[in-house]
Design a protein around this nucleic acid. Structure first.
Length: 224
DNA sequence: TCATTAAATTGTT
DNA sequence: AACAATTTAATGA
């Protein structure tokens, strides 16, 4: 099991910090275990932490007052989220729900603000991260309107395996086809068909509750 | 270790 | 949306 200290040491952004700064980050960060189905944060709560996923899978989603659910994206081990929310004075605009038993690293707002004020490397990392997300969401709007469900599932999976957002994570992802449906905006049945097709052409392999990416570039470029 | 059962997930209509 | 089939995890002999 990966410890908080090891997770921080292996993350990209602390490596850009001076020794004193990364020491402070190590001291002030917390770790929290969240059981499957549990909340990492909830819409409306004050934003107190920047969140890194040490282990597991967290989905960023929202539920309308009428009870309709939308899933925006999933965050895998190695990924960080909440920087956009920390940069605003507002409370969380979305829920973050653990899809499996997960562990997260929490960097307090004060530490985050201090890094923002003192480290160019940290700012550069954040800019890159925000840019990567922006690109991801623009691409989602584009392929939502242009591509068929098979391709939408393919690109959605490719996004989950983005090495810039989730460095060093494995080629495997434990996730049900139902959740993949929420993530890609496609029915569970359609996800099942898409996965079978993508499996036939060897872009990925499907097992019980698991998908393994065999050809990330192929998934990214898949158009049907 | 094996059999039984419930729960989760998948495959099909 | 409904249903059947399959896989996994938990339980107890």
């Amino acid at each position: 099991m990966v410890t908080l200290a090891k997770f921080l040491a292996d993350s990209v952004w602390p490596q850009a910090l001076e020794p004193r700064a990364s020491e402070r980050v190590r001291c002030e960060s917390l770790e929290r275990a969240v059981a499957a189905g549990g909340y990492v944060c909830r819409k409306g709560e004050p934003v107190e932490y920047w969140v890194g996923v040490i282990e597991g899978l967290v989905k960023i989603s929202s539920v309308s007052p009428e009870g309709k659910a939308v899933t925006f994206t999933g965050v895998r081990a190695g990924g960080w989220f909440g920087e956009g929310s920390l940069l605003r004075p507002d409370p969380w605009r979305y829920d973050a729900v653990a899809l499996r038993d997960s562990r997260v690293a929490l960097v307090p707002r004060a530490t985050f603000d201090w890094l923002l004020d003192s480290s160019i490397g940290f700012n550069r990392f954040l800019l890159g991260q925000l840019n990567e997300r922006l690109a991801q969401f623009i691409a989602m709007v584009e392929y939502d309107r242009l591509l068929d469900p098979d391709a939408r599932v393919a690109r959605c999976l490719a996004a989950l395996f983005n090495p810039r957002l989730y460095p060093g994570s494995s080629r495997e992802l434990m996730i049900s086809q139902e959740e993949l449906g929420y993530l890609s905006g496609v029915s569970r049945q359609r996800v099942n068909q898409a996965l079978q097709r993508l499996g036939e052409i060897r872009l990925l392999r499907v097992d019980y509750g698991k998908v393994t990416v065999l050809d990330l570039e192929g998934l990214k470029a898949f158009e049907g």
